[in-house]
């Protein structure tokens, strides 16, 4: 269905027989297979301006300014607790559901619409900005029912339409071939990687514009991770993707743009290649080269 530039399997980079890590002064990412796609500027889809975010009295984000581009994969990296997941959850207002969170200053605009405007319905927003979570969370229902869940909520009853969406979504999530004969079995019977792809299929079934992924591979083994990464690469054609990841290699492999966060501040945001090859900031360099301190 999709042919792309051949990607070196992710597992390869983890192969113990791979060349030893370069010395610290060398650029670590030379050994990482990076997407060769040249990054041409694209339209801004999400525009974050001067965002200050609080959990109760504790400030989690400080004056974040970020413009995310259409049909690109943007990776948020940074050490634990740096605010990258928080920012991600701001984008579809999932933070609204947590007690004591508030945006003190700044705005987030998606396609020119401030998502905190009074007439914006977070429910409608979330239909357009889907999300995949760290831990795969299929409902204890059949694969089929998992995927049509969102559509059924919107009141779609047409069987042929639902069937169509299931097939398209599963194909989109590269899961169709593996599950097409057991669509009506429980989603919980799938392997971890398959479950995560099922969640992705479920997210794309409602045809969002943006897909947010919160460390989607952190609970998966290398082979399943490789599959998801490949999938992300394919999804980029139709969707704007924002991915939070702990693995710098992963960021380097899948993303076009990378934003590095540290202590709630956006330190650097640029093309992935630039971030990894010629970071402008010393902290970024220290982090991406593994000399974090």
């Amino acid at each position: 269905m999709v042919t792309t530039t051949p990607v070196m399997p992710a597992s390869e980079s983890l192969d113990p027989s791979a060349p030893p890590r370069p010395a610290a002064n060398q650029r670590l990412f030379d050994s990482i297979p990076m997407r060769a796609t040249p990054v041409t500027p694209a339209r801004t889809v999400i525009d974050i301006q001067n965002l200050d975010f609080f959990y109760g009295a504790k400030q989690a984000l400080f004056d974040v300014n970020l413009a995310l581009e259409e049909k690109r994969v943007t990776a948020f990296i940074g050490p634990s607790g740096c605010g990258k997941s928080t920012l991600l959850r701001c984008l579809n207002r999932m933070n609204d559901l947590i007690d004591g969170t508030r945006i003190a200053r700044g705005s987030i605009e998606i396609r020119g619409i401030d998502i905190h405007r009074r007439d914006v319905d977070p429910i409608e927003l979330r239909k357009r900005v889907g999300m995949v979570f760290q831990k795969s969370n299929p409902f204890p229902k059949s694969i089929y029912e998992n995927i049509v869940y969102g559509l059924r909520l919107q009141g779609v009853r047409d069987k042929t339409r639902l069937d169509e969406v299931v097939e398209r979504s599963l194909k989109g999530a590269a899961l169709w071939d593996e599950v097409k004969d057991r669509l009506h079995e429980s989603g919980l019977g799938l392997s971890g990687g398959q479950q995560q792809r099922l969640c992705i299929a479920r997210a794309i079934a409602v045809e969002p514009e943006v897909i947010l992924m919160d460390e989607p591979c952190s609970a998966l083994d290398p082979i399943a991770t490789a599959k998801i990464e490949e999938l992300i690469h394919d999804l980029k054609r139709d969707y704007t993707i924002v991915i939070v990841t702990h693995s710098m290699q992963q960021a380097a492999r899948v993303s076009d743009k990378t934003a590095f966060f540290y202590m709630g501040k956006l330190v650097e945001y640029n093309d992935t290649r630039t971030i990894f090859m010629h970071p402008a900031n010393a902290q970024t360099e220290a982090y991406v080269s593994g000399r974090f301190g």
Binding site: N92, M94, L97, I123, E124, L125, R126, K127, R128, G130, M131, F133, K135, N137, P138, F139, Y149, G150, L153, Q154, C199, R202, A203, V206, L212
Partner: peptide, 18 residues
């Protein structure tokens, strides 16, 4: 009931009651 069920459902654009 795991938190993930609620998150997944809400992220798909369902209302609280749904």
């Amino acid at each position: 009931v795991p938190r993930g069920f609620r998150d997944a459902s809400l992220a798909l654009g369902s209302t609280k009651w749904q």
